[in-house]
């Protein structure tokens, strides 16, 4: 009988232990819930501050925002692409469109050679080189996937806008039907900085170009890949090693970091300079007006 009394206590302790465990877990759960909710709120405040940072820079303001009464703030980092060449030396090649891996067949890429942010008409000159290297095609693509390139250079000769065209094809001799493009002898080029291998390089305005030097008043270069089966890269690079031979920034990458309490949220935005719509080429060369 004495032993049985002890059993009651054991069972009681067991029951109490289970009840205690359940109770503690409920309390712990509620504490972690409230902690999570607080963090989520801080995180939202940080995100809203980061968005405010982006908005402020896009509207021409400074790189910091601070809502002191809401204990949130944001700092924005601005990266221009390509970075402006401040001194002598070659600028990194610019892949176009920025941040994209390539151009599909007949897709148009645009490179600003004048200052895209200039309010003047015509826009202020920026790139003043007499020649420019263009790179196209993916050298790792299959051997029957060789792209041709159509280039349109828009420039302002002091009185009116004019254009100059190049039609470049490494396979011009064997295209069927014949396209009458200029035959280009291509050797693959690799840039160590980007690691991208191009099928072809051509220097417009270079010594091998029958059209001679590039004119002054350079505005835009538009490129279109033809015949390619897969998306292939296109890039330009200033060929001359001089101070005014920097291609203007075509895009800016904004990285905004918002802070609130212990939370940090980051937003990244890429803003590409104004892009002329694809029907621009047809408008320039149409005989009459183009109506919607």
């Amino acid at each position: 009988m004495k032993n049985e009394h002890g059993q009651v206590i054991l069972i009681l302790i067991l029951v109490m232990t289970v009840a205690l465990a359940i109770g503690i877990s409920v309390i712990q759960r509620s504490l972690s819930d409230i902690s999570t909710a607080t963090r989520v709120e801080q995180s939202s405040r940080a995100f809203s501050a980061a968005e405010a940072g982006i908005e402020k820079v896009l509207s021409g303001g400074g790189l910091t925002v601070s809502f002191e009464d809401n204990s949130s703030n944001a700092t924005v980092t601005q990266n221009l692409q390509p970075a402006v060449n401040t001194g002598f030396g070659f600028q990194d090649p610019l892949e176009c469109p920025p941040g994209k891996s390539g151009l599909a067949k007949e897709e148009v890429a645009q490179v600003w050679l004048a200052d895209p942010n200039s309010a003047a008409n015509p826009p202020a000159e920026y790139y003043k080189g007499t020649n420019l290297s263009v790179f196209w095609g993916d050298s790792s693509a299959s051997s029957d996937d060789k792209a041709a390139l159509e280039l349109t250079l828009i420039y302002h000769d002091g009185t009116e806008y004019k254009s100059r065209k190049w039609f470049l094809d490494q396979q011009a001799a064997v295209r069927n039907p014949a396209n009458n493009f200029s035959k280009v002898n291509c050797t693959p080029v690799t840039f160590a900085s980007s690691g991208i291998k191009y099928q072809c390089k051509y220097v417009i305005g270079g010594s091998g170009d029958p059209d001679g030097f590039l004119p002054t008043g350079l505005m835009l270069l538009r490129a279109r890949l033809l015949y390619n089966k897969t998306s292939q890269p296109f890039a330009v690079r200033a060929e001359t090693n001089c101070q005014d031979c920097s291609i203007p920034p075509q895009a800016q990458e904004l990285v905004s970091e918002g802070f609130s309490g212990q939370s940090k949220r980051t937003i990244q935005v890429c803003q590409i300079s104004k892009v002329v719509p694809f029907y621009f080429d047809y408008a320039v060369f149409s005989a009459g007006d183009i109506n919607k």
Binding site: A19, L20, G23, I27, R29, S30, D33, I34, A37
Partner: peptide, 23 residues
């Protein structure tokens, strides 16, 4: 232990509800 639990559980449930409302 029982008193502690009984005293805290309503508070804990209130915190759960508060966090839900906050979210």
């Amino acid at each position: 232990c029982v008193v502690l639990l009984l005293a805290n559980i309503p508070n804990a449930l209130m915190l759960v509800s508060k966090s839900r409302h906050m979210s």
